[in-house]
Design a binder for these strands. Sequence first.
DNA 1: TTAAAAATTTGATTTAAATCAAGGAAAAAT
DNA 2: ATTTTTCCTTGATTTAAATCAAATTTTTAA
Lengths: 226, 226
Amino acid sequence: MNKSFDVLSTLKKSSLFQNAPQNILTELAELATVLKFDKNQEIFGEGEKALGFFLVLDGMVKIYKLSPKGKEQIIHILGPGDVFAEIVLGGAETYPVYAQTLSKVKLAFFEKQKFLNLVQRKPEIALNLLALFAGKLKTLVKQIENLTLKGAGERLLSYLWDLSKEGKQSIFTLNISKSQIALLLGITPETLSRLIQKFKDEEILEIKGKKVKLINPEKIKNFISS
Amino acid sequence: MNKSFDVLSTLKKSSLFQNAPQNILTELAELATVLKFDKNQEIFGEGEKALGFFLVLDGMVKIYKLSPKGKEQIIHILGPGDVFAEIVLGGAETYPVYAQTLSKVKLAFFEKQKFLNLVQRKPEIALNLLALFAGKLKTLVKQIENLTLKGAGERLLSYLWDLSKEGKQSIFTLNISKSQIALLLGITPETLSRLIQKFKDEEILEIKGKKVKLINPEKIKNFISS
DNA sequence: TTAAAAATTTGATTTAAATCAAGGAAAAAT
DNA sequence: ATTTTTCCTTGATTTAAATCAAATTTTTAA
């Protein structure tokens, strides 16, 4: 069947299940429901009843918080192979954040109880889950570090540095719009625009549309860790 | 033996183990090493080899990040019953943060592999672990929300509101110094001082030393959720 | 108890980034 | 292909909070 194949191939690539044996992967694929979304659709809202968690099969998703005044802070940007809303497995009754698509998206949905039953029968998955949670914890702590201990410029360079795989890939393409990057970095689009201009003037990097070129990776490396 | 008794009573109170059966609690207590620290001692530093995790038996501990310039952001403040560095159970090789005591402290240390062996033998603990991780994730997301979507004043009131148990306890005592609160809220001591003065003038609260009195809980509630 | 050190408060000034405003470029829809 | 809408850029101004500086209070230690 086409569905199982689709899900299976992404399951294997996902960090959560990549080392799982074939029989478990097949069970997981059977267990999953495939969901399709258009661009800019809400997947779930904060406070909504949490029924299960998701694996991104295709497209980009953002996880974010809204202030009462409508200001948005992106917590995570997710792509193929990434898992989100896994917090339900820790007993959360409602989603504590918003989730929205940034493109056409295909998701695998895992109903909480069904998945936990599988974990009970195959406890070795629990270790994968712990690793997944630990990874998210580390990401969030890094996010706090970036937002509180770094200035806007440093945050931007740090973000681009990560996208370039620590400078190994000095030319690459942004996978989300600049306004979304601003929301992730906790700055306004205006500030982002000005920073890009400044770094261009300083001949540190070049950005044309979504194409990025790091001209002086050494300078960037120094700047983000000093 | 005195040691086992000490550890056991706190284990029962901790959210991680509170619902565990007696036999597991006893095993856990046997497995733990009790460590004692003076005030302002480093427990571990960022990048240090992660050998296990900790349960606070007595005293206060802070988990924090440092910028290259020495600026500090507190991630968590922990007291009796709280667990920290649990990230090692997800496979982390090094601690990603600093941990330091804020008072005389007694800790139970659980060596990673010993603990994981116990989890293997008693997989029901894994669910507790997932809940622990999920709780931390939620706390960190809330921290990001506070730091990015709220102003300094709102963050302070939000913090005090939580200490007052959502206003149920309008008189209470701060368990850490004001300068540490400032580091947690991501502001300077000067700003904290001025905010307290302002809220006094507005007759919203009174703070004398470590004694806090919320004069107008309704106003606070409104302020932090509007 | 008193001296020394540390933490807190208050004042003056600076600064990083937000906001407000408008024009230009790119993307999407017709 | 052209219009419409959304996104991005640039400029002028404001603002929240940081920094710098110094006095005062609290805590710790001799």
